[in-house]
Design a protein around this nucleic acid. Structure first.
Lengths: 212, 212, 212, 212
DNA sequence: AATGAATGAGTCTTCATTCAT
DNA sequence: TATGAATGAAGACTCATTCAT
């Protein structure tokens, strides 16, 4: 019912439906992410993004007041999707070891489908050094205590060796982060996810032959 | 007149002169590496490097015809030093396992002293996407077969589990690469080298408690 | 339907409607004058005027097809009010000298209440140099012959010294114009009208001491 | 002799001779003043100034880091020349009344030769409203006490009527300021200096006929 | 050889104006 | 009709590279 305000003019073109705006932003971010990833932040002229969107440059600036804002929005969107995928893949799995195995796989699989994000992570770091911490690490820190609590529990349960939790966490985290970067930069054609079993195996069991 | 033939390769003994040029290049690269690391490639005005060197901008351009050339020279120099340090630290150590342990430590220690290089690696990737492979990976590939041969030998000797050598190598490589990046980007104050024992331990033995 | 013929001049009685439009224009001009005066013509975003009016930007454009038109309309409105005030203040005063005295006071008093107009005069000149003459001077020229006739009469009557009428007129005009500008630009807090007696006195009698 | 520094490199292209730099700045300011006056501050593309100077745009930016700086430098230069001319014209004249007469003439004559400056004064005010006081008034304030002291002395000497010195000063100041503006804006073809005798006469003696 | 000066190509961003609902 | 959305033209400024001394 009463769509207008009770007082004052409310005729005219209605404000764009919020969902429509979100949809448009989504479009923009998708394309911008691609272009940034392809050309690099500094080599990207916002005009090119606009052209690819068949949209005026100023329309992008309406949603994201600066090129920087646009870029950060791309990064944020990517990280949120990563987070969403991992949570969804873990689902209700109860076994702690299994949760780790799934996380590793899910993480790598995500970047198979979102190589552009890897580029954005680099670029964020390369361009915006003043930032306290890059977005990715902000997000990572927020999960930190969760993880450490789980790891501690697993040690208590006798499932993990008695190593410092921060060491375990850092090790896994570095292993994953390093894997996506090295894999991607080598332009190797294989799938990241194919590495998952090996990484998991080594992380859990190590490379040494204990029989020896 | 004189000072060597006006055309053709130097013949006489302009050695001292050449040494002076090398020394100057070294100076330039050292300062340039710092400035690039501090500000990022694109945000670095060559003038700033010149100022910091108390040298004319054109003098830099005499040695490095473009800003890009200068940047790549910085990266190359860094990688060569890394290579030199690791070789030197391994020394004549014969035990294969020990050689790995030393490599890990040496690698991390190097980046404790050369944080700037981490930045340059990122920047190279972020800016020069057209390059077939970043310098770091070029170098890494050259060592690839060496490492794989050694790992294969260790498996044959029963010292390592029978995993695909590429998997072992990729895993270690990612672990190290990931560690320097994550450590550095978190602006954590600790030393990278402190992580070495944990990484080595987990890489060799894994995190699972086998008693269980 | 109805509401006058769909084509051609209004015939019926859309008077109320027209009055509403005029009222809206008045609102627009009042606010626009303020904003222009505050920020300068070029620094004024039409959007800001619209916001301040709680009105759509396009609604302003409906009344004034360009920003320039809007600006000129502000200037015109101001000048008309000035004219109206002076005429009203002079009223039916018959004595010519007294008419001058009143004009001076009225003019200064007007700008005490309409400082924004001073800004608009400057801005018109600063931005629209192509115009043959700024609005203010157009208006001034139209009054020119009136004034000169009156002054000539006063000389004939022996009330003014026998100076060229254009000189007298220019002198008074410059004195007033200069006063509002210098006063306003100095951001002095006093009232312009307070200067009126002094200006009048000096204009009529001069500063020299004739006793000497 | 020893043109180079005693230590450190000092070969290479010598720093431009200071006089040469000043000469170049003078050229820039002269042209910039013209172009600003012709087109208005905001309508002036720095490129146009550069073109007119047959010089790269960046060369202007080397001397004046922003368009605003360039503009203010133009204004300052103009005011300094005005000051210089008036001082020079007054010379060693001792008689106080005569000094005023000369000042009036000198002032008007200056603007006959520097009409562009009038435009710049307007534009400064129109564009840079945030400034505490426009340049012209800064300069004017500095002379204020000088003038007021002289006027007070003239009153003491019985040469001027006993009016508040600030009123006398403001009146003269407004008269002159107003004259250059109104004259110039009317695009009248006559010389400003031709008005000087009338202004002086009226300022000293007034317009009323005392015989009456 | 060394280096201060010159510059033009390149980019982000703004905003008056038009369009679509 | 009223108005939110869209946009293209415009302009300040930077900086890698070249030039001239």
């Amino acid at each position: 019912m009463s769509k207008g305000s009770s007082k004052g003019r409310s005729v005219g073109r209605p404000k764009a439906h919020e969902a429509a705006v979100l949809e448009k932003c989504e479009q923009i971010l998708k394309v911008a992410t691609d272009v940034f990833a392809r050309n690099g932040y500094r080599n990207t002229d916002v005009q090119v993004i606009a052209d690819e969107l068949e949209m005026g440059k100023a329309s992008i600036y309406r949603q994201y007041p600066t090129k920087q804002d646009l870029f950060f929005a791309c990064v944020d969107r990517g990280i949120q999707e990563l987070q969403r995928k991992i949570n969804s893949d873990i689902g209700a799995e109860q076994d702690a070891i299994e949760r780790i195995r799934i996380s590793i796989y899910s993480y790598l699989e995500f970047f198979d489908d979102n190589q552009a994000l890897v580029e954005l992570f680099m670029q964020e770091r390369a361009e915006f050094k003043e930032r306290e911490k890059p977005t990715y690490f902000e997000y990572r820190d927020r999960l930190k205590s969760d993880w450490e609590a789980q790891l501690a529990q697993m040690i208590d349960d006798g499932r993990l060796r008695n190593l410092p939790v921060h060491a375990i966490r850092d090790c896994l985290s570095s292993l994953l982060y390093g894997t996506i970067f090295t894999h991607y930069f080598q332009k190797s054609s294989g799938k990241l996810a194919e590495m998952a079993p090996y990484l998991t195996d080594i992380f859990f069991t190590g490379v040494l032959n204990k029989q020896a």
